[in-house]
Amino acid sequence: MKLQVLVVLFIVLFVSCIPIKSVQDINGYHIIEGNKKAGKNFKKQNVFSFQIYKNKRVFDRYLEERFKDTPGFSPSNFIVEIEDVPFTIRVLSKQETNQYLDFTDIIFEKKDPELVKKGKKKEFIYMVVNDENGEDALSTDSFYRYIVAKYLDDIRMGFNTY
């Protein structure tokens, strides 16, 4: 009996020392601060981010259908009016995302394991928003932060049901 208890305790201790690599899904959205070291093409700006399991082209198609009545619409850069204020929404490409966001901060400093997962491939959509004066509409000191974040979350939720 003592031997069995010792074996069970040994197994429990041994298993508890092995780190678990699986990561839970990201629920909702995150607003990430842009890279301070970004090049001249990018200002330090907050980024609205959410996870998708579909290809980014499917997200582009969703945007095209949702904003088909908007003149001059492009899925990578478009203007919408939220509460009678025009905002420019820009969906970052993979190359822009790599330049714009400093993932080493997220992975190593903040230890955010949500960017790495085995199994199902995760992709992320990153959007930046400027108000009519060209200011970051998602910054913490922006008057528009919450209404813009709610609008982008509505887009995210609509895409999830698409």
Rank of each mutant, 00 (worst) to 15 (best):
L6W: 09
D84R: 04
K36D: 10
K111C: 11
I155A: 02
F59L: 00
Y162G: 06
Y62L: 05
K122L: 13
I147G: 03
D131P: 06
D154R: 03
D84E: 13
T104H: 10
E96S: 14
I79W: 08
K37T: 15
S22Y: 14
F14Q: 13
Y151W: 07
Q24S: 15
D112T: 09
Q4N: 09
E114A: 11
G134V: 09
K111Q: 11
L63G: 06
K94F: 07
R156D: 06
P19N: 01
V85I: 04
G34F: 12
I18E: 03
S93Y: 13
V15D: 03
T161A: 04
D60W: 04
I26L: 12
D25A: 04
I82T: 08
G134T: 08
N27C: 04
I20T: 11
T88V: 10
S74A: 08
T161M: 07
I26G: 04
P86G: 02
F48N: 10
V23L: 05
R61G: 03
F87V: 09
V12I: 08
K44M: 15
G39C: 15
Y151C: 03
K56C: 02
V47K: 00
T161E: 12
I125Q: 01
G28S: 02
I89H: 01
I79M: 14
Y62M: 01
R61P: 00
F50L: 14
I125W: 05
E109P: 00
S49C: 05
E65K: 13
S16A: 04
N133I: 07
R66E: 02
E64F: 03
S93F: 13
P113T: 10
V12R: 07
D102E: 10
V148R: 03
Y100C: 13
I89F: 01
F67D: 14
S76G: 09
P86S: 04
I155L: 05
V12A: 06
I20M: 11
V85Q: 05
L101Y: 01
Q45V: 15
K94N: 10
F124V: 10
D69G: 02
V80D: 12
F50Q: 13
I82D: 06
V12C: 07
S22A: 13
M157T: 10
Y100A: 12
D131V: 02
F42A: 15
Y162M: 11
K117W: 07
V58Q: 01
E135Q: 11
F73H: 02
I11W: 13
V23Q: 01
Y53G: 05
Y29G: 05
D131W: 10
E64Y: 01
K21V: 14
K94L: 08
D154L: 00
M1A: 08
C17R: 12
R90G: 04
Y146W: 01
A137T: 01
V129Q: 10
E114D: 08
S139C: 00
V12D: 03
K94I: 07
E123Q: 14
F159E: 04
P19W: 06
